[in-house]
Write a protein that binds this DNA or RNA. Structure first.
Lengths: 337, 337
DNA sequence: AGTATAATCCAAAACGTTTTGGATGTCAAG
DNA sequence: CTTGACATCCAAAACGTTTTGGATTATACT
């Protein structure tokens, strides 16, 4: 029922070839016939069949993106913003975006295999890189084009964009130290996540630079959710010698810490300082507003998508490794305002 | 370079047809040759080319989903949870999920046209239905399969799943009335959003049932973001005769209202009651925890995806209209605990 | 022996597009 | 009148799969 090139060809009395070439803008079609064909195609409501085109060109004009979700009730403003950035940039290049949601593990790598081996996409975006990241190892082995948000500890080269979490966290920690804090709690994410380990390094850097010995008991591992931040916050702040400040390695957990502090009757910003990382929109509207480190999530989504486009179009990247410097955003939750 | 049926056929010495049929499990292939073919395919790492298969079968095994994003910095936990539900269900059925992000309007409808007319997907998921929803009108006109999350006011029938927002909001409002509130502020979303107008109806129902005349000045329109809720909250609570309770038609705005109240020195739960709608994970961890109406977002994602699968497989739905009843969740932000 | 039945296989067409490698006709220059 | 250049057109192949409609051979039954 949909209109095909053949239908148009029959109508105008030219061959399929000529119709195809007229629509594609080749100059070996007479201007008059081109006009006729264009007009007829328009009238008949012709739209090229994406699948047929793909089979012939061997390009899908689609990029893949597997969102790492943890647990059934996954809800993270970070990813919706990142997705918006990626999606809007993809639209600019008329690329489709194929999305899967998988928890890290067996099924996740299968989702990658499916996209790659069944040639469903031209390239992939890999986010939240991990130690010895099996996704990156796999894609490199297959020679499949991708761009990662985040570095890796694999002894291999691949294109990535990353935020200097170590530097950002170091600045944040030093800011707290400059406010007089010495016992600073830290809620990390699981350390196989590269960004978590970078940020933890930044925290340690700052302590060391100021001669503060790291108290291992002040460092906990959370799961990046508000619930998890709440629980860790209760633990840290419920200690006999509680920290005077708590840093969470993402904003969602920091919001949980604020909640935990308040549930213990502490006033955040006065009795205890709290800080996060990301600067999700919610951070500015927390009560009190959350001190954090801003990484431009939406922009990052656009940039990695843009990099992938360049990689697919040109075959290589002029700038395959990009490190963005995040920016400290001081608000009231750390009490210095 | 990828292995094709032809490669296998040459290796095992059978025709492409036989290889194809062996892999597809037809019973007109001898058991011994089937084994040989299966083994060889495995060894050679054969994976069928998705594009070729699609062209032949005229099915894409892909469903489309256009996320309505507002403004560049779009970040909404509601959508990441919905997406997780949809994505996980789609994975169960081995369906690909094609995602676009567009602000409502011209570009949005083009995204639909692209998916439909270029046959990129087999069916679509439409979320956040609107008055005279042009997307639904378009899809019905094209006779294209879709399932909506939300009803419409169009004089037409289509498959949908919806939450009874009117009933939910009515219960919530009555709860506040039962606590003694008479001046209840209400922050709606733009009323062309069906859910917004349903929820507003529920609010009005409750007022009327208790003989409270609606004060138009207590009803504002927000944009569903925390920022927007904050601003509306400041307006309402800054009045000379401020309301004693404020309901926002989604949780994100309610969190903004809490923030606004606190910025005005009010203690939420004591000086003013605040309530929302959705029960996003953040709601339980707000300070104070947010009274809200729970709609099971993740489950809804799964359900609408499941419905679309049934529609595509069976050609029709046994239960084309589903209305879920939401559940009131009373927490401390309305002061009754 | 001949004939129906079953088991196993496959050539070819089809899906709708793009691209290759000419074919045909026209016109100007020699 | 021939030649070459140019403008315009198109048949056919190709992309990799699924499916149609038999073909072939072996087996079982009169």
């Amino acid at each position: 029922m949909p209109v095909t090139l053949k239908d148009i060809a029959e109508r105008v009395g030219y061959s399929i070839t000529t119709v195809s070439r007229a629509l594609a803008g080749y100059d070996d079609v007479a201007e008059s016939t081109r006009q006729l064909i264009l007009r007829t195609a328009q009238e008949m409501g012709y739209r090229p069949d994406a699948t047929a085109r793909r089979l012939r060109t061997r390009r899908t004009d689609t990029i893949g993106f597997v969102i790492p979700t943890h647990g059934p009730r996954f809800s993270d403003p970070f990813f919706s913003e990142l997705l918006a950035g990626i999606g809007n940039e993809a639209a600019r290049w008329e690329l489709d975006l194929l999305v899967s949601t998988r928890a890290p593990g067996e099924e996740e790598i299968k989702a990658y295999e499916r996209m790659v081996t069944e040639r469903r996409v031209d390239g992939l975006l890999v986010v939240r890189t991990r130690r010895q990241d099996p996704r990156i190892a796999y894609l490199l082995e297959k020679g499949f084009p991708f761009v990662a948000f985040g570095r890796s500890d694999l002894e291999v080269d691949f294109p990535y964009l990353d935020v200097d979490g170590r530097q950002g966290m170091r600045e944040l920690t030093e800011h707290l130290i400059s406010l007089g804090h010495r016992r600073i709690g830290y809620i990390s994410a699981p350390l196989d996540l590269m960004f978590a380990s970078h940020r933890l390094e930044g925290y340690k850097d700052a302590l060391e630079a100021h001669g503060i010995v790291l108290d291992e008991r002040l460092v906990l591992i959370g799961q990046l959710t508000e619930q998890s931040g709440y629980e860790a916050g209760r633990v840290l702040l419920g200690r006999r010698e509680p920290p005077t400040a708590v840093i969470a390695c993402n904003d969602l957990m920091a919001l949980g810490v604020i909640s935990a502090a308040q549930s213990l009757g502490l006033q955040v910003g006065r009795d205890v300082a709290v800080a996060g990382f990301d600067d999700i929109p919610l951070a500015a509207h927390a009560q009190p507003p959350l001190t954090t480190v801003r990484q431009p999530i939406y922009e990052i989504g656009r940039r990695i998508c843009r990099m992938l486009v360049e990689l697919l179009r040109e075959g290589s990247l002029r700038e395959p490794h990009v490190i963005l410097r995040p920016r400290l955003v001081v608000r009231e939750s750390c009490g210095s305002i």
